[in-house]
Amino acid sequence: MLKVSVYRYNPETDERPYMQDYELEIPGGRDVMVLDAMHLLKEQDQTLSFRRSCREGVCGSDGVNMNGRNGLACIVPLSEVVRGNRLSLRPLPGLPVVRDLVVDMEQFYSQYEKIRPYLIHDAPPPPERERLQSPEDRDKLDGLYECILCACCSTSCPSFWWNPDKFLGPAALLQAWRFIADSRDTATSERLAQLDDLYSLYRCHGIMNCVAACPKGLNPTKAIGQIRNKLIASG
């Protein structure tokens, strides 16, 4: 029997959050994903709330904290996180909790919106034809566009915990660089100017929790470094 301890909080009935213990029998003793275990828990207890959708690590719904580590429950097998037959499940740290494992992502999304996450270009595109982009220029977007907005990185970042309203956080900054790096985007100088204050970018202290947490193997710290270099070069 696996011992699972789950963060519970229902604003309608609970004055404060608490940890609830469950015992879980995994059918066949198989090494299932943490999300599968969460579904088994929900069969025991319908009142446990969490988000999930694709169950294959591409939609970014089920970011949770598993034995102290942020990740996507659907692609982390129990064997990777369970220690001493115990698993503790908590919501992503640093964001307000709506209920149980569901966090309020508003702050995270609004930081994303601040970097203007869309292509900006001066000239109208060619009619009935794509803009051209060399494979080398397109390669510069690899490791950036794959972000799934799961918030595992930003909610593992002490600087984001401290200043979630002013520091953009690793996820938004990775996307800021994704558009600066895109040869089709013409707003580079405006984008850089927007980041050039005390908080937006420069609160990153290179702790690199974001890199360890990213379930897609992306590297926000590197992207932040590239933005800094570009800012310095542009004087």
């Binding site: 869309y118 794509e130 051209l132 060399s134």
Partner: peptide
């Protein structure tokens, strides 16, 4: 279809590219 696909490229979809720069 082509009109709709080009529109996606114009709004930023990062398609893989051929050596000549096309999708």
């Amino acid at each position: 279809g082509p009109k709709a696909v080009y529109e996606l490229e114009h709004i930023g979809l990062p398609f893989s590219r051929n050596p000549d720069g096309r999708i």
